[in-house]
Write a protein that binds this DNA or RNA. Structure first.
Length: 271
DNA sequence: CCGGACGCCTGTCGGC
DNA sequence: TGCCGACAGGCGTCCG
C-alpha cells in the first residue's frame, strides 16, 4: 500500500501520540507477518518510553533507550491510535498500549508488513544498511542517478522502484514522476542523458512533496491513523487513468505491465 | 553482477 | 446469485 508519502503522513499523524509515551503493554495477536515478529520484542519494549520516531525509506523507526523497533507497512498495513480498551477487529495484529490509556494499533490484512528489533544502530540492520539515498537528500542527485544507471538495461521505471537506487518511490509515484519528466517508463535506464536525469530527480521530489502535502494517496482504505484519507489521488496524472485523456495532450493514457506491476503512461508525451 | 519471475497473504471487483 | 480469475500502494529470494 504505502509509498514514501503515505509512510511520512503516517509518521506525522502518529508521532505526536507516541513520542514520550511509555509502552505499558504489548499485545501480539498474530506474529506471522512478512517475517515472524521477534519473540523477544514485547519483553524488550514493555516499560520503555518512545524517545523519538523517524523514517528511513518506507520503514518507521521507534526509538527507545533499550533499542529501536522497525516497522514496515507492507502493501496493506496501517497504524491507528485507539483507546487502550478498544475491541480488536480482524487483522488488528499488534497493540502497543501507551501510558495505559491509549493504544498504537497495527492493522494489516495481507500481512506483508513486518516488525523488527534492533539492539544496536538500526541503520546497520540488514534490511537498511544497503538501501539507496533518500529522495530529498543531496546524495540523490542527477549525477548520482546518471552514474548508477550506466550500462543498465532495466527499464527506468523498475530502476526507480529499486530501493538500492533510491528509496520511497513505489508503483504510483514512479509512473507519476516519469510522466512529469516526459520519460517513457520502458526506456532503458542506461539510455537516458544527464539533462533528463536532472529533470527526473526534480520531478520525483516535486511529486513526493505534493503528495505529502495532500496527506498521501488513498486508493482503497489507507488512512493516517485518525481516519482521515489522503487526497493526492485527485492529482494523479496517469496512475489508474487507463483510456482517459492525458491532461497534457488529450490522447488516451495507456496501461502496461512491467515486472508484474501496472504502469500507466502517455505514449505521446513520454519518450 | 544483472534481470526476471516467484511467493508471501487477504480482499475486492469484473466478467461469465 | 455464485464462482473464478485477475489484480492490489512491497520486497526478499531464487534461478538462469
Amino acid at each position: 500500500m504505502p509509498e514514501l508519502p503515505e509512510v511520512e503522513t503516517t509518521l506525522r499523524g502518529i508521532a505526536p501520540h507516541v513520542v514520550n509515551a511509555q509502552l505499558t503493554q504489548i499485545r501480539i495477536r498474530e506474529p506471522r507477518l512478512r517475517w515472524p515478529i521477534p519473540a523477544t520484542l514485547a519483553e524488550k519494549l514493555t516499560g520503555e518510553t518512545v524517545t523519538g520516531m523517524t523514517r528511513r525509506a518506507k520503514y518507521l523507526l521507534f526509538h527507545t533507550r533499550a533499542g529501536t523497533m522497525l516497522l514496515h507497512l507492507g502493501m496493506s498495513g496501517s497504524l491507528s491510535i485507539t483507546p487502550a480498551d478498544a475491541l480488536a477487529e480482524k487483522h488488528d495484529h499488534v497493540d502497543f498500549v501507551l501510558d495505559g490509556v491509549s493504544c498504537l494499533r497495527f492493522t494489516d490484512p495481507r500481512r506483508f508488513g513486518s516488525l523488527h528489533w534492533c539492539d544496536q544502530n538500526p541503520l546497520e540492520h540488514a534490511l537498511l544498511k544497503d538501501l539507496g539515498p533518500e529522495p530529498f537528500a543531496s546524495d540523490f542527485s542527477a549525477d548520482y542517478l546518471y552514474a548508477v544507471s550506466r550500462g543498465r538495461r532495466i527499464s527506468i521505471k523498475q530502476h526507480l522502484m529499486n530501493a538500492h537506487v533510491v528509496v520511497g518511490v513505489g508503483n504510483i509515484y514512479a509512473s507519476e514522476s516519469l510522466f512529469r519528466a516526459g520519460i517513457h517508463p520502458a526506456r532503458p535506464a542506461g539510455r537516458i542523458a544527464i539533462a533528463r536525469m536532472t529533470r527526473l530527480v526534480d520531478e520525483v521530489r516535486q511529486v513526493l512533496t505534493e503528495a505529502i502535502a495532500q496527506g498521501g494517496t488513498t486508493l482503497r482504505d489507507f488512512s493516517v491513523g485518525d481516519g482521515r484519507p489522503g487526497y493526492f489521488q485527485q492529482d494523479l496524472r496517469v496512475y489508474g487513468r487507463k483510456d482517459q485523456p492525458c491532461h497534457r495532450c488529450g490522447n488516451p493514457v495507456r496501461a502496461m505491465r512491467q515486472g508484474q506491476r501496472a504502469t500507466y503512461y502517455c505514449p505521446t508525451c513520454q519518450h
